[in-house]
């Protein structure tokens, strides 16, 4: 009996303790909710892996423009991020690489409003520098002895790859299905695969190691990137300010520089 009581007490203590922690983090920023200028505190941004470089830059510039803010970035495949958010991960902003993964979050009622499309991106074939396998298009990927990495279909780059391959009528058996676009690209960089379907922006970032082969069917699989403030945002004002910054001329310049297209 005593044991049972102790256990119950402990559970309660743990629960309160955890709740307390949450409050502390959430405490500061609420003040800025109404006045757009007074943005402070930490902004938690969950962003698609393909946004790694551009959002890192944007985060730093945002911090410089808004003294007292810290942008915490969490990059992963959009599907993983959507799952994390729906499971209650503490995010203020979600930037997805495809509307489908955004819909996972909005359908669950976890977005504060309708998402805004901020960029578009399309696929290229990433191959090793110098294109040793002489790959010119999707059909070349099916040649015997050519190893190809794709993203898993749940991730936007994988869904786009499927659309593009279907459009080209190419039946391709990849050697691996990676969890995000960066992992697929890494396999090319390592030389473990001969090619991967990745975004133009990712190939551009790694232009020292990989070459990007454009192919016509990628026009059929253009990804629109939506961004939104989340319903359970601890720092909604900060999140909105970050999105405003992404949509600003400054933000657009960084994204265009990275190879993204305007929506």
């Amino acid at each position: 009996m005593k044991l049972k009581l102790a256990a119950a007490g402990l559970t309660a203590v743990l629960a309160f303790g955890l709740a307390g922690c949450g409050d502390k983090e959430a405490g500061t920023p609420a003040a800025g909710a109404n006045s757009g200028s007074a943005v402070t505190g930490t902004v938690n941004v969950f962003a698609a892996a393909s946004l790694t470089e551009s959002f890192t830059t944007l985060g730093k510039r945002f911090e410089a423009a808004h003294q007292g803010t810290t942008v915490k970035l969490n990059f992963a495949g959009s599907s993983a991020l959507a799952t994390q958010i729906n499971q209650g991960a503490p995010a203020d902003v979600f930037a997805s690489a495809a509307p489908k993964n955004m819909a996972t979050v909005t359908d669950a009622g976890n977005a504060a409003g309708p998402p805004t499309t901020f960029v578009k991106n399309q696929l290229v074939i990433a191959v090793a520098k110098g294109n040793p396998k002489k790959i010119a298009g999707l059909a070349d990927l099916t040649r015997a002895g050519t190893k190809v990495a794709l993203c898993a279909e749940a991730v936007p780059c994988g869904a786009a790859a499927k659309t593009a391959l279907d459009a080209a009528g190419v039946k391709l058996t990849p050697v691996t299905l990676e969890q995000d676009v960066k992992a697929a690209l890494a396999k090319v960089k390592l030389g473990e695969v001969d090619a991967a379907l990745v975004y133009r922006t990712d190939a551009k970032v790694s232009s020292a190691d990989v070459e990007a082969i454009e192919f016509p069917e990628s026009d059929k699989a253009i990804n629109e990137y939506p961004i939104v403030v989340l319903k359970n945002a601890a720092n909604a004002a900060g999140g909105q300010a970050f999105i405003d910054y992404v949509l600003s001329a400054d933000g657009k310049a960084v994204l265009t520089e990275a190879g993204f297209q305007a929506p």
Partner: peptide
């Protein structure tokens, strides 16, 4: 080893991929 069903996708990888795709 990568991740491909039937060849390299073991149970833990399948758990991870299923979770990531939102199928809790």
């Amino acid at each position: 080893a990568g991740n491909y069903p039937g060849i390299t996708q073991t149970m833990p990888l399948a758990v991870y991929q299923t979770m990531e795709s939102g199928d809790l």
